[in-house]
Write a protein that binds this DNA or RNA. Structure first.
Length: 232
DNA sequence: AACATTGACAACCGCTCCCGG
DNA sequence: CCCGGGAGCGGTTGTCAATGT
């Protein structure tokens, strides 16, 4: 992948950071390559974008990954593979690069079975317009918001009237979409599988609630019905 | 104290996709 | 429909601090 010559990585200085922040505050984000020039930075547009997205953006949450976040990352990785941007969209304030680094340094060694090969994960890669982290961060269907109305089925019920239900016990043993398919006894059509990964979709909302109930509010007895399943 | 190793993460690259002309 | 530019994604690696020998 990399050429024979080594690449010199140059850390961003605080002065460069201030230039970029100042420019974005005054002019917003438009074409990164042009922004770099007008901001007086000797950096590529890609480098500027990366610096902003992964470090300078005020939305980024500082501090260590919490236990809850770690659980979510692990579970989502089982379901999605290395689709860091999709995972980041569900963890407000965390970036795809941060999740990727955290996985590679903290969690990868603990991962056991059911790894998702890169080729497989890339086969189901979503269009960038649907996975834009910035737009997704603005959605209300985040895990944090799910904590406020985790029992709500308003969005879900608007889609379908099925009465089949999923219990926590079922979900705990259903860590992959395929497992969920198996449990439900009905395959997802492709669109639905994709929609599962879109946080702002009804499926995404459903999954967010699933994750919340499974990982953050695990104080049920395992048989309690968490929410009606309107999809299967 | 000096050197080697390891861990963490910032930053880069190539590839792919989207979109406008 | 095709093409080129821009943006986004995931993989990889360089750098540096911490830790071990």
């Amino acid at each position: 992948m990399r050429g024979p010559q080594s690449v010199k990585k140059v850390a961003w200085s605080s002065e460069e950071d201030q230039k970029l922040i100042h420019y974005i505050r005054n002019h917003g984000i438009w074409t990164w390559s042009e922004m770099a020039k007008y901001a007086g930075l000797s950096r590529s547009g890609k480098s500027c974008r990366l610096r902003w997205v992964n470090y300078l953006n005020p939305r980024i949450k500082r501090g260590n990954i919490t236990m809850e976040e770690e659980k979510i990352i692990s579970t989502m990785h089982k379901m999605l593979g290395n689709r860091w941007s999709v995972m980041a969209a569900r963890l407000p304030g965390r970036t795809d690069n941060e999740l990727k680094n955290y996985w590679n340094t903290h969690l990868k060694k603990h991962a056991t079975n059911n790894p998702v090969p890169r080729t497989e994960s890339q086969k189901i890669r979503k269009p960038k317009s649907e996975a834009d982290p910035k737009s997704l961060l603005d959605t209300k269907t985040t895990l944090s918001s799910a904590s406020e109305d985790s029992k709500s089925t308003d969005v879900a019920c608007a889609v379908n009237e099925s009465t089949e239900t999923i219990t926590e016990a079922n979900i705990i043993s259903s860590h992959t979409i395929e497992d969920l398919q198996s449990f439900c006894g009905q395959p997802f059509v492709t669109d639905h599988k994709e929609a599962f990964e879109e946080p702002s979709s009804p499926y995404g909302t459903y999954w967010n609630e699933y994750l919340f109930n499974l990982l953050i509010a695990p104080d049920t007895d395992g048989t309690e019905e968490i929410w009606p399943n309107p999809y299967f």
